[in-house]
Design a protein around this nucleic acid. Structure first.
Lengths: 249, 249
DNA sequence: CAGTGGTCTAGACCACGTA
DNA sequence: ACGTGGTCTAGACCACTGT
């Protein structure tokens, strides 16, 4: 066999067919779809090819697979979206504005009790605390408060962060395995309001991010944006992650 | 062969090994990792097994694969996170508060120019516009403004939405293929402030979501939360989606 | 107990892109 | 040109689980 696979591969065709039946409503939630062996007969291919297709459909959340009981169409559940969080410099320049970065303070210090919430139990012995401002043109764009775990990133001790934001530096230097974001709306505090050149109490968007490598927190950052200057966009296409993931990483 | 695979499968072991080398920094970005054929020799297994492992690592963004050139460790790029957006009722009950839903208005009407931004070019001919309030205990929790495309969901015409929020109804009834979220901070308008029982100008978190099925927008919703009552949490663990995706959908 | 998915094999041909 | 990944085969044994 080994058909030339003109546009798409066989397993991709199976994915598309099943996805079509689910999205069109032909196969409703809890509907039991054919078994791998039935599919392989229908498509005249081996079971492995069907398995690859159905495994990816399961990963994308379209179906659930159970031994003996077979595979059934998932009932829609909490939506999960792919949230893209870009580098701030890239973001500002995408707005067509000149980007500028100003370092406010950079202090090495021992971890306090207040830091324990952001780091793991016990926490890191020594921290690097950095506060800075990102500007779009002449306007303040984003206020950054960051803590870096010096046990995880000892090189940060030698980095002044005078010309380069710690986020960009860390992204290039440190591998990370997990990140957690929390997004909230707040009223600007007096301190932040002064820096962002707005009135205290003005609505702001806050993004807090903790980044892990293996078991320990590498860095914690709080980014404060003036309301209206920034929004977070998240997209989700279940099968997008199946069809488009080959070459783009 | 067919080893009993004591705790994990062979391809999962390969995934873990490669991930470990990348996260530890042993294999830096742009490092070329062994070819599939080399791995299969090292592990004493077939190339298909290695292929399954490396394919999943590529999907998770750890490595990039290029024909002839081999596979290289990815350089970290824009972080993408998995954003969980839950049903509002679930969310309120998770806070340990009684949930209540109040319908304010429900109107069927023709699409206006102002709706065109939320829907596709041309837009749907007829819409169902619903405004409602979600309460946690006796306090307003979230104000909902929703537009439903009646061409995509004609059954909505027969649904009063008096006792049931349209979000929960749609989630159960309508398949969707894509969603887009935008999260912003705003100052409460007069109308919204009155409904949420806060002062005008109070910071609020706004989530706007458009949901597609195939090519057309099914529904658009704007959810407004009082600042402090709600935050969005997003997590990302590249390999979490590899190891934990089997049985949990 | 019977049928499902989970995993694995030892080959194979092909398309592609880089050296 | 040649080695890479991409895909596929025609089997196999096993673990699990619903009937």
């Amino acid at each position: 066999m080994t058909r030339p696979a003109p546009g798409t591969s066989l397993y991709q065709r199976i994915i598309n067919d099943v996805q079509g039946r689910i999205l069109s409503g032909e196969w409703l939630p809890d509907h039991r779809i054919p078994s791998e062996r039935e599919f392989s007969e229908q498509y005249g291919c081996s079971r492995m090819t069907v398995n690859k297709a159905l495994s990816q459909l399961a990963q994308a959340g379209y179906i659930e697979r159970r031994r003996r009981a077979g595979s059934v169409v998932s009932r829609p559940h909490a939506q999960s979206a792919i949230l893209e969080i870009h580098d701030i410099q890239t973001e500002v320049q995408a707005l067509g504005l000149p980007y500028r970065y100003v370092l406010f303070s950079r202090k090495e210090r021992r971890a306090r009790n207040a830091d324990a919430a952001h780091f793991d139990a016990g926490g890191p012995a020594r921290l690097l605390a950095v506060t800075a401002l990102h500007l779009a043109g002449s306007r303040p764009f984003c206020h950054e408060e960051r803590l870096i775990n010096l046990l995880a990133v000892p090189e940060a001790r030698d980095e002044p962060f005078a010309d380069q934001a710690p986020g960009a530096w860390l992204l290039r230097r440190v591998p990370w395995s997990q990140a957690e974001h929390e997004i909230r709306a707040i009223a600007a505090s007096l301190d932040v309001a002064r820096v962002l050149e707005i009135a205290a109490g003005t609505p702001c968007l806050v993004i807090e991010r903790r980044t892990w490598n293996a078991d320990h927190v590498v860095t914690f950052v709080r980014l404060t944006y003036v309301a209206g200057s920034h929004s977070v966009v998240a997209r989700f296409g279940p099968l997008a992650s199946l069809s488009a993931r080959t070459g783009e990483a």
